[in-house]
Design a protein around this nucleic acid. Structure first.
Length: 501
DNA sequence: TATTGGTTGCGGAA
DNA sequence: TTCCGCAACCAATA
């Protein structure tokens, strides 16, 4: 995880600790391998019952299985509670009673409706509910770790938690401000009509708080229901929670949900490339498309971007422009996003790359036009890419078209202060549609996909991934930065357009 | 087998 | 602002 995600998690733990102290207890953080540390503590403290929040991700399932087996041999009872989704996944599975998960949102919604009402949120505990034993254990060494304990250097600082601080208190505050205090906004909410490039978020940003368990999905659900929304799923706020539930259920019933190979029954097999330079340029906001680079900068700094902004950059990396593997994009999002989530992240990357759930590859986001619909002046770009702050609105989405005099007076020479575009979108997007069609046809005929690069890249935590790059570095990004030396691919890449005079 | 619908496309014509 | 062509996807239904 990025330093931002770590920081968010640590703030969550501090907030939880504060709440527990208010109830006469405290939080104890045990460190180490769960399958080693938890049995040790169980013996040491003579624990008779361990309860935990169940998680349906494959990593957690394997881990929990190991821990629970060991604990049971020690005579410790265990009890899992699956409350991260509106319904426990095995309940949905029993009701659905088919081996293949629903292939459409409509089908899932029918299943959901047949389940009855989701469980109600549980009331907050009071002092009398807390086990007395926990305060009697005299312990040191169970404090909440610091960022430096976790291996981050002194000069590495989180930036996302300045804007979105972690913790239940902050989550409830945000729920109050964005949902409870805005009945009108909630009741007319339609997701596709919210702007991806609003300076101040056009959606709730409750995702990080749901992901980290600061507020429960049932609390969210019933606060919205209370306001009697007039809009319906899939676009309404309840509809958003149903998407979440649908993707959780899809991931629950699909082995290798985070991979293309080994997942051919559900995931389209497409010969994506893995070009380290192109992937790095995308991650580091050096694509030369201001809309894309602004989004990627907000992602790095704030650990959150609007859902449609995720669409734009995911389409750009995969089927739209760069033709890079969606798994690489998913890994970067999971590393960076405060609301990085196995089920939702991998589902959406498959959606955007037309690998599963959505297949209309003819519909392609333009890195130039899409943002203009909601931000004609490019204020969002100016905020995140200050080197373009003085570019006239006419050229802000395609600064390489600005005449050189305009570039000079804006103080931003394309190719020096800001990169040339990596590709010609109108050319590559059409070519990629042809590749999509060919891949679909091959799979239909039963042929095997041939990956251009059989050796997947490892996911390295590079300095640039984790460091918060000061804005000066962006400003100084000179022609000698690696984007200039990038070897441009064969037929697809950009022959520099001449500036219009 | 044909038809309809699908959370969130684009670009141009009317 | 609304509609259509683009080129033709998949899932569900009749």
């Amino acid at each position: 995880m990025s330093i931002n995600r770590h920081s968010f998690l640590l703030q969550c733990l501090h907030d939880l600790d504060q709440s527990l102290r208010g109830l006469g207890s405290r939080l104890f953080v045990a460190r180490g391998q769960p399958e080693i540390v938890l049995p040790e503590l169980t013996k040491k403290w003579d624990v008779s019952l361990l309860t935990y929040e169940g998680d349906t991700g494959p990593y957690s399932q394997v881990r929990d299985e190991k821990v629970m087996k060991t604990l049971q041999t020690l005579g410790c009872k265990t009890s899992a509670h699956y409350t991260h989704t509106l319904f426990p996944m095995d309940q949905l599975h029993t009701k659905w009673n088919k081996s293949e998960p629903p292939k459409s949102y409509q089908s899932f919604m029918n299943l959901f409706k047949s389940m009855g009402a989701p469980r109600k949120p549980v009331a907050s505990p009071s002092i009398g509910d807390m086990p007395r034993e926990s305060v009697e254990i005299n312990m040191s060494g169970f404090s909440i770790p610091t960022l430096s304990d976790l291996g981050f250097a002194e000069n590495e600082q989180p930036s996302a938690t300045d804007v979105f601080p972690g913790g239940e208190s902050e989550g409830l505050k945000r729920l109050q401000q964005t949902i409870c205090a805005r009945p009108q906004w909630v009741s007319t909410f339609a997701k596709p009509q919210t702007a991806p490039n609003a300076i101040s978020p056009s959606t709730t940003v409750l995702g990080p708080y749901l992901t980290m368990g600061c507020i429960s999905v049932s609390t969210f659900f019933y606060e919205v229901v209370k306001l009697r929304p007039k809009t319906d799923p899939p676009e309404s706020l309840i509809g958003q929670l149903l998407w979440r539930e649908y993707f959780y259920y899809s991931s629950f019933t699909t082995p290798n949900f985070d991979k293309m190979l080994g997942n051919a029954a559900h995931c389209k097999q497409i010969p994506w490339r893995r070009d380290a330079d192109l992937i790095a340029a995308w991650k580091e906001a050096r694509t030369g498309f201001p809309f894309i680079d602004a989004i990627m900068t907000q992602l790095r700094v704030q650990g959150w971007i609007h859902h449609l902004a995720r669409h734009a950059v995911a389409c750009f990396l995969t089927r739209g422009d760069l033709w890079q593997h969606w798994e690489e994009g998913a890994k970067h999002f999971e590393f960076t996003l405060l609301d990085g989530d196995y089920a939702l992240n991998n589902a959406n990357w498959q959606w955007l790359s037309c690998s599963r759930f959505f297949y209309q590859y003819g519909r392609c986001y333009s890195p130039i036009s899409f943002g203009k619909k909601t931000d004609k002046n490019g204020d969002y770009i100016r905020k995140w890419l200050p080197q373009l702050a003085n570019m006239p609105a006419k050229y802000i989405y395609e600064p390489w078209l600005a005449p050189i005099e305009v570039q000079k007076s804006a103080g931003c020479i394309i190719g020096e202060n800001y990169p040339q575009p990596l590709v010609d979108h109108s050319v590559v997007s059409k070519e990629n549609m042809g590749k999509m069609q060919a891949a679909y046809e091959l799979q239909k005929k039963g042929g095997d996909v041939v990956m251009p690069d059989p050796t997947p890249l490892g996911f390295c935590r590079t300095a640039k991934d984790s460091a918060v790059i000061p804005s000066e570095e962006n400003k100084d990004s000179s022609p000698s930065s690696s984007s200039r030396k990038m070897k441009l691919g064969p037929e697809t890449f950009f022959a520099k357009k001449k500036a219009k005079t």
